[in-house]
C-alpha cells in the first residue's frame, strides 16, 4: 500500500511498537534478573533496571553446576550437549532428506512412488506420537544416554525431503542433460550441480532445524537419565524444581539467557542465506 495518511502511519507504528514491547519485555526482565544477586531477586517488587552482578552470575552459572543443591551438570556441559544434539539433528536431517529427494526426483526405480508416499505418511508421525515404540527401539539398541539416542530418532524428515524435491524440480532438465553430455555421472552431478545449487536452501533449512533441535524437550527428557547428558532446555525446568524454598532466579535467568544465545547466533549468522533460500527462485 502506498498511502500517505499520517493517522494511519501513527496507528501502524503504534501496533508495531506494542508488539515489540510485548515480545521484548520478558527478555528484558530475564536480562535484568541475570544481573542481580539471589537476595535481591527474592524481594518484591522485582527490579526493572540492571544490577552489577552480571559477570559474577555468568561465572557461577556457566562453570558451576547451575544451582546449589541441584543435580544438573555444569551449564557449559549442558550447552555443549544441546549443541552437539542440534548439530547432529541438523546435519543428519539435511543429508538424509537431500539424498532421498535426489533419489525420488532423478532416479526411476521400482516402487518409487510407494517410497514417496511412505515418506509422505511419516508427516503424520512426529516423535511425540511414536514416542513409546521409539523409546523401546532406542533402549534396545543401547542408545540411551548417548548423542546418537538423542538425535537419530529426530533425523528423518518428510518436510525437508519435500522441500528439496521442490528445489530439484525447479532445476531445468537441460542442466542434467548438459552435465551428462559433459560426462558427469550421478555422484558428480549431485556434488557438482545439485549441492551448490541448493546451497541457500540448505542454509535456510539449517537455521530452522537447528532451532528445532536445540529446543527439543520431550525426547531428551526421556532418553537422558544421566545428568551429564542432559540438555540445557531440560535443565532450566529442573532448576525451577530443584530447591525447596525460593528459586534462585538470578542463576535460572542467566541459564535461560545462555540458552537463547546459540539460536540467535545461528539466525543472525545465516540471515542472508535464510532470506535468499526462502525467496530465491531463479535457477
Amino acid at each position: 500500500m502506498v498511502e500517505n495518511r499520517p493517522f494511519l502511519d501513527f496507528v501502524t507504528h503504534l501496533v508495531l511498537i506494542v508488539g515489540i514491547l510485548l515480545v521484548a519485555l520478558p527478555i528484558w526482565i530475564m536480562f535484568v534478573a541475570s544481573t542481580h544477586d539471589a537476595v535481591r531477586m527474592a524481594h518484591v517488587p522485582l527490579p526493572l533496571l540492571p544490577g552489577g552482578q552480571f559477570w559474577e552470575n555468568l561465572r557461577l552459572t556457566f562453570f558451576g553446576n547451575g544451582l546449589k543443591g541441584s543435580e544438573t551438570a555444569a551449564v557449559w556441559q549442558l550447552m555443549l550437549n544441546s549443541f552437539i544434539m542440534a548439530m547432529m539433528i541438523s546435519i543428519g536431517k539435511i543429508s538424509i532428506s537431500i539424498l532421498s529427494a535426489y533419489a525420488i526426483v532423478y532416479f526411476r526405480f521400482p516402487l518409487r512412488m510407494t517410497f514417496f508416499w511412505m515418506i509422505f505418511i511419516t508427516l503424520m508421525l512426529p516423535v511425540e506420537v511414536r514416542i513409546v515404540p521409539t523409546f523401546e527401539v532406542v533402549a534396545n539398541l543401547g542408545m540411551l544416554n548417548s548423542y546418537w539416542g538423542l538425535s537419530v530418532p529426530l533425523i528423518a524428515s518428510a518436510t525437508a525431503t519435500f522441500m528439496f524435491r521442490q528445489v530439484f524440480l525447479t532445476i531445468p532438465d537441460e542442466l542434467l542433460e548438459s552435465a551428462r553430455i559433459d560426462g558427469a555421472g550421478p555422484m558428480r552431478f549431485f556434488f557438482d550441480m545439485l549441492l551448490p545449487l541448493s546451497r541457500t536452501n540448505i542454509a535456510a533449512l539449517f537455521v530452522i532445524v537447528f532451532i528445532y533441535g536445540w529446543n527439543q524437550y520431550l525426547w531428551p527428557l526421556l532418553v537422558t537419565t544421566d545428568q551429564s547428558m542432559g540438555t540445557i532446555v531440560i535443565s532450566i525446568k529442573q532448576m525451577l524444581e530443584a530447591e525447596t524454598g525460593s528459586p534462585q532466579w538470578n542463576v535460572i535467568m542467566m541459564t535461560a539467557l545462555l540458552a537463547m544465545l546459540p539460536p540467535v547466533a545461528v539466525v543472525i549468522g545465516m540471515q542472508k542465506f535464510f532470506v535468499k533460500g526462502l525467496t530465491e527462485t531463479e535457477k
Binding site: 542433460e177 552435465a179 550441480m193 551448490p196 535457477k283
Partner: peptide, 30 residues
C-alpha cells in the same frame, strides 16, 4: 552409448549453463 561417450556436443535452446560456475568453469567442466 552414453551421451558422454558419443563424442558429441549440444547447444540447448535455454543454453543450460551451470548457473553457479563462472564462464571459464562452464567451458572447462567437461
Amino acid at each position: 552409448l552414453e551421451p558422454a561417450k558419443r563424442s558429441i556436443a549440444m547447444v540447448f535452446q535455454n543454453y543450460a549453463l551451470y548457473p553457479h560456475m563462472t564462464v571459464f568453469e562452464n567451458m572447462s567442466y567437461g
